[in-house]
């Protein structure tokens, strides 16, 4: 526990020292939101979105940006780099276990995701009148499960990739797919229905987030699928993960 605390403190310092990555991780979704929000027509209620504004409709997709960036991109790259450079192995020769470093990275990933989501929700509310999630419990649950699913996938990538390059080769397509189905590249109403439906079930489960944000409780099936993905990928990662 003692070692974990010290490792977490050191990793947090390193995390804060990488300012460009930190700002992108936490600020990018909000920046996109602000840019879109500056377009007047996107702030007008629109029947296409059941009378919501486009900004409200699109905000959950923006949550996907950070989730995908951190979960399937940054986390596996960092872990693969640490393994490739022998950081995990060196730690294994000391009284500290390399799992402490992995845990510290997960904590930082979560912190980044949380900070980014809070900033987005806050700015959306204050600047563009997007209401706070109307179904807070459902939203929290959808957010936790979606995050867990993506982080587990990220760990699975880190587990199967032997090198940093291999991790990136796996992470980039996964990231693009996550963003695409999450409706980041093309808003979901423009996607063919079947693609949008698939996106309901790909992590982080953007439909559940949208439902909970705009008021209805998320569908149990959507949440259940996220839980299943989180557990399956997590177990797979735990079995396949190598410290060297």
């Amino acid at each position: 526990m003692h070692a974990f605390r010290n490792i977490l403190r050191t990793e947090a310092r390193l995390y804060l020292r990488d300012l460009p990555t930190l700002l992108t991780t936490i600020g990018l979704p909000t920046v996109i939101l602000v840019v879109l929000g500056l377009v007047p027509s996107l702030r007008k209620p629109d029947p296409t979105f059941d009378g919501q504004t486009f900004v409200s409709y699109f905000a959950p997709s923006l949550l996907v940006v950070t989730l995908a960036m951190v979960g399937v991109n940054t986390l596996p790259s960092v872990l693969a780099t640490y393994r490739e450079r022998g950081v995990l192995r060196r730690l294994a020769t000391t009284p500290a276990h390399p799992a402490a470093l992995l845990a510290a990275q997960l904590v930082l990933a979560l912190a980044g995701i949380l900070a980014s989501a809070l900033l987005l929700i806050l700015v959306a509310r204050l600047a563009f009148g997007v209401p706070f999630p109307r179904h807070p419990l459902g939203f929290t649950l959808a957010f936790i499960l979606g995050t867990a699913a993506l982080l587990s996938l990220g760990l699975l990538v880190a587990a199967v990739a032997r090198t940093t390059k291999a991790a990136q080769a796996l992470a980039v397509p996964l990231f693009l797919v996550t963003m695409f189905f999450g409706g980041v590249y093309l808003p979901r109403f423009l996607l063919p229905d079947v693609v949008a439906r698939i996106g309901d079930y790909t992590p982080p489960g953007v439909q559940a987030l949208l439902d909970a944000w705009t008021g209805t409780s998320p569908q149990p099936l959507h949440l259940a699928i996220m839980a299943v993905i989180a557990v399956a990928a997590g177990v797979g990662a735990a079995r396949l993960f190598r410290w060297e």
Binding site: N6, R17, G86, R89, R90, T93, P95
Partner: peptide, 30 residues
């Protein structure tokens, strides 16, 4: 692990970690 120190072949550290930070962190394990 408390009594044997090991320096492995080709084992590096994170780029941004500073010398004193690295030693203080590792010292805290023992």
């Amino acid at each position: 692990r408390q009594r044997v120190g090991v320096q492995l072949q080709e084992s590096q550290l994170p780029d941004r970690l500073r010398v004193a930070e690295a030693l203080e962190l590792y010292a805290s394990f023992y």
